[in-house]
């Protein structure tokens, strides 16, 4: 049977992608940020999964305002990289796992989570930047990736409670897959940031760190926090953090092993977080 070995949490700022693409990672502004991922890169080499279920949000690239699915799963064999307006990022296409993705869709939908099934979709920085931060810039991504976009752009977005429960349903789905695959579930986005209006540039280190504490030790408590608190405390785009609860919910009920925790301000407009939790056997 497939098993979930770990979950990874990671911010996904487009400027990080640009810094990588333009060779700026050693510049003083970016160096401390990328240094925070040195351990993560080493760790993932030693703990390479077969498949990553990558929870992220599309930033008006795959989905226009015509159709905005709350939860979707990419079931394609391959996903191309979107042109977000600056030209497509020079990163490899993402190779999916259609069979596992379809299995997950069938299981999770029968568990009352009405996923939208997406057979053709481009992926944006929300998905590719975390891959770069964890894997660097290889010629091909070293494992399969199932994109799992969540709407956090058009309000209302799904509640923390719903996200955590979806994580539980994903755990059940993945661990009932017959092939003995090692699977990681990643939650991306955040941390505190606001990209609009006179309040742009908001950062809340205290709130972000309390979020990390609760995500690790008491995800149920974090799941009870309403949207408005994310907006007020962590900025209008900080709401992306609800997606981390999906990955957390996919972990076992036993307390996880915290193997890495990193926090840095700023990455462009954003507080950058990276957390790695291993399932205890």
């Amino acid at each position: 049977m497939a098993r979930i070995t770990a979950s990874v949490y990671c911010s996904h700022v487009p400027a990080i992608g640009a810094a990588i693409d333009l060779g700026k990672t050693e510049e003083p502004y970016w160096k401390p940020l990328f240094a925070g991922f040195d351990f993560s890169k080493k760790w993932i080499k030693e703990h390479l999964p077969d498949v990553i279920l990558l929870v992220y949000n599309d930033h008006a690239n795959a989905f226009s305002l015509d159709i905005v699915p709350t939860f979707a799963i990419g079931t394609a064999a391959e996903f191309q990289v979107a042109d977000e307006g600056w030209g497509p990022r020079p990163v490899p296409n993402v190779i999916g796992h259609p069979d596992l993705a379809s299995h997950i869709a069938q299981s999770v939908i029968q568990d009352d989570f009405d996923l939208t099934i997406v057979n053709k979709m481009e992926v944006d920085h929300g998905l590719t930047v975390p891959l770069n931060l964890m894997f660097g810039s290889p010629g091909a991504w070293p494992c399969r990736v199932i994109p799992f976009p969540v709407n956090v752009v058009l309000y209302p977005v799904p509640s923390g409670r719903r996200c955590l429960a979806l994580g539980h349903a994903l755990r059940k789905a993945i661990t009932s897959y017959d092939e003995p695959l090692k699977v990681q579930v990643w939650g991306t986005g955040g941390m505190s940031h606001q990209l609009q209006g006179p309040r742009a540039g908001l950062i809340n280190k205290k709130w972000d760190n309390e979020f990390l504490d609760r995500l690790i030790a008491d995800p149920e408590a974090q799941a009870a926090v309403p949207h408005i608190e994310y907006v007020r405390e962590a900025g209008s785009e900080g709401i992306e953090l609800v997606m981390w609860l999906i990955a957390r919910g996919a972990m076992s009920d036993k307390p996880p092993k915290v193997v890495h925790r990193f926090y840095h301000v700023p990455g462009s407009n954003t507080a950058i977080g990276n957390l790695i939790l291993e399932n205890q056997t």
């Binding site: 505190s192 006179p198 309040r199 742009a200 540039g201 908001l202 405390e233 301000v265 700023p266 462009s268």
Partner: peptide, 29 residues
């Protein structure tokens, strides 16, 4: 324009002022 230039433009700050604000830890809540 980058996201930082776009976000900064909405505050009335110059590009450098907004960049400095972020380097100093961002806007307080």
């Amino acid at each position: 324009k980058s996201f930082q230039q776009m976000a900064g433009s909405m505050t009335g700050m110059t590009e450098q002022e907004y960049r400095d604000l972020m380097i100093q830890g961002g806007r307080s809540v």
